[in-house]
């Protein structure tokens, strides 16, 4: 591995550790930094409420930022390579839209059946998670059937966008007929919320994301070959159908699980892979995947910190922060691609 890449990894690891501590330190209740560290290393702080705030609220939120950032970044990288499209992201296949439909049906459907989501607070997060995963898996199953019939990745991409549009329309209809309180709960979920993640949810999210990231790294070799196009990839020995299916399944697991617990968080999946390529100046997924993991952690931790600065008496929606970071980068990608097209 070139020295330049080792330096990037080290710096990003140190910066992620720093941002992680800062993210736990910052919040509406001021807790001295040494007390935060004491609790994190297993000790007890001066006040019991501080222990509760750190261990039950801030630590899960920061860990969720780390896991979401890593998962969404790697998912985006794989989608961009698979579709040879610089603007592809984890949501492009409509899988997260499927998750959103599941959640919309759960939240607003419960309202229609006479339950208010406020009454279901204990079970609601689990219900949201399960309905999101079920929705994602349904769309994924549909896509797998389509991929088996149509051996054309662009058709699948277009179909994914169409599925997303149809689901948005369905969600719009459900929203129209739903109660105001349920509508608010659903809209809050769509804004993305890392603070909603509990310690128990992390026990599921952590192994699933770690598995997805390791599996993604193990797909580095076929992912590299996809850069040549499917014809060449086949000609150098890649089993296209199998590797494409694996890439889509693992991406769905990563995106679906993260979306279920944290809501749909945009732009990270599109932006981070470009930052990784820009920094490392390489095509190699063996370098880009670890770099995207580290960059994703850093950026989402930073977004989480910005969303809850001490001067603010409330938390900003994380999606607004990631959009503000992401949109300038997307504009840069569009201009860069236009320049490349004119050179070629």
């Amino acid at each position: 591995m070139p020295k330049k890449h080792r330096v990037f990894y080290l710096l990003l690891l140190l910066s992620a550790a720093g941002l992680f501590l800062l993210d736990i330190f910052i919040g509406s209740v001021h807790i001295p930094f040494q007390e935060v560290v004491r609790v994190l290393v297993g000790g007890q702080s001066q006040k019991e409420t501080w222990d509760i705030i750190i261990l039950q609220s801030r630590l899960p939120q920061s860990l969720a930022a780390v896991l979401c950032g890593a998962a969404l970044s790697v998912s985006g990288l794989k989608m961009q390579t698979l579709f040879k499209n610089p603007l592809a992201g984890p949501y492009i296949l409509g899988i997260s839209s499927g998750g959103a439909l599941g959640v919309a049906l759960f939240i607003m459907g419960a309202g229609a059946l006479g339950f208010s989501m406020g009454d279901l607070s204990l079970n609601s997060s689990l219900g949201i998670a399960l309905s999101s995963i079920l929705g994602s898996v349904s769309i994924l199953s549909l896509l797998i059937v389509v991929i088996r019939r149509l051996n054309d990745i662009m058709t699948v991409l277009i179909l994914g966008v169409m599925i997303g549009s149809v689901i948005t329309a369905l969600i719009g209809l459900i929203q129209f007929f739903s109660y105001e309180a349920d509508l608010k709960t659903f809209v809050m979920w769509t804004m993305g919320d890392l603070s909603a993640v509990t310690g128990n949810q992390l026990l599921i999210l952590f192994p699933v994301v770690v598995f997805g990231l390791i599996a993604s790294f193990m797909l580095s070799k076929p992912l590299n070959s996809y850069l040549l196009g499917e014809t060449y990839a086949t000609s150098i020995g890649v089993n296209i159908n199998r590797s494409r299916m694996l890439i889509i399944i693992i991406t769905s697991i990563l995106t679906g699980s993260v979306t279920a617990f944290c809501g749909p968080i945009g732009f990270i999946g599109i932006v981070i892979p470009h930052m990784a390529r820009f920094l490392a100046k390489t095509y190699d997924h063996r370098i880009l995947i670890p770099l995207s993991i580290l960059l994703g952690m850093n950026v989402l931790l930073l977004a989480d910190i910005l969303s809850q600065l001490p001067q603010l008496n409330f938390n900003l929606p994380i999606n607004s922060i990631t959009s503000l970071i992401g949109i300038p980068v997307i504009i840069w990608i569009i201009f860069k691609n236009k320049r490349m097209a004119s050179i070629n």
């Binding site: 850069l227 040549l228 060449y232 086949t234 000609s235 390529r277 490349m340």
Partner: peptide, 20 residues
């Protein structure tokens, strides 16, 4: 496809957009 790749190779006219 892996066995085939050791037996033969192809060069097509497909234009690639590769970076780095």
């Amino acid at each position: 496809s892996s066995e085939r790749a050791k037996l033969l190779s192809i060069v097509t006219t497909y234009k690639m957009m590769l970076e780095h």
